[in-house]
């Protein structure tokens, strides 16, 4: 999928956000007083407002698909995935970097997608839970989580699995103690930790890598 359109353009069916802002800011100015509107126009305040909310080009690879996008600087990687690209497998838990539900791989490195801005990853390669399986064949870690009941409600599971795959690839799954320490960034409120550790140990013993 190659997109050259701004995401906002898609949402606004062709009318760009910048134009919209220009119009609304001019309308707001006119709604005040004629004098204020003239002054605002003289100072190019509409231009300034549009500039302030400028969108930034972003070229990013997500699960093997290339995207050319335009995004607001404030958009987190998590919100890009969930709200703009509809990849809702990555979960929003705390949105403060404390629960790990939003864990994805950026260039192979596990990261909390809620605490990083999309624009900071121009040219990056992102892998989410949707990109882990090969066709209909689940990743060994996904298989192991099912086999060992590594979840109850399932909300933290995509983050747990992404973190678990990275944990083994980093070489931090040598013992139960090491796994628990290096999986501590993923909180499970159902308390499936014992089974999660078992799942990781089985995949580690099988020598599987992402």
């Amino acid at each position: 999928m190659v997109e050259n359109k701004s995401l906002e353009e898609e949402d606004n069916q062709g009318s760009s956000r910048r134009d919209f802002l220009k119009k609304t800011s001019v309308m707001t100015a006119i709604a005040l007083t004629p004098a204020a509107a003239i002054k605002a126009s003289d100072l190019k305040l509409d231009e300034k407002l549009a500039d302030a909310l400028e969108q930034v080009p972003l070229s990013i690879d997500i699960n093997g698909q290339h995207h050319d996008l335009k995004v607001e600087p404030r958009l987190t990687l998590l919100d890009l995935l969930r709200e703009k690209l509809r990849l809702t497998g990555t979960k929003k838990g705390c949105d403060q970097g404390q629960c790990g539900a939003c864990t994805v791989h950026i260039d192979g490195v596990r990261t909390n997608s809620c605490l990083t801005l999309a624009v900071m990853h121009d040219g990056a390669r992102i892998t989410t839970i949707e990109g882990l399986a090969t066709g209909n064949q689940l990743h060994p870690m996904q298989e192991a989580f099912i086999k060992h009941d590594g979840f109850q409600c399932g909300y933290c599971t995509p983050g747990q699995i992404m973190s678990a795959v990275a944990c083994i690839n980093e070489g931090h799954a040598g013992s139960e103690k090491e796994i628990r320490e290096f999986m501590s960034g993923n909180i499970c409120r159902c308390g499936a930790y014992a089974n999660i550790v078992n799942a990781i140990q089985e995949v580690k013993a099988g020598g599987s890598r992402a």
Partner: peptide
């Protein structure tokens, strides 16, 4: 300090 994911960033 922190978690593996946070230390990665």
């Amino acid at each position: 300090g922190a978690s593996p994911q946070l230390r990665n960033k």
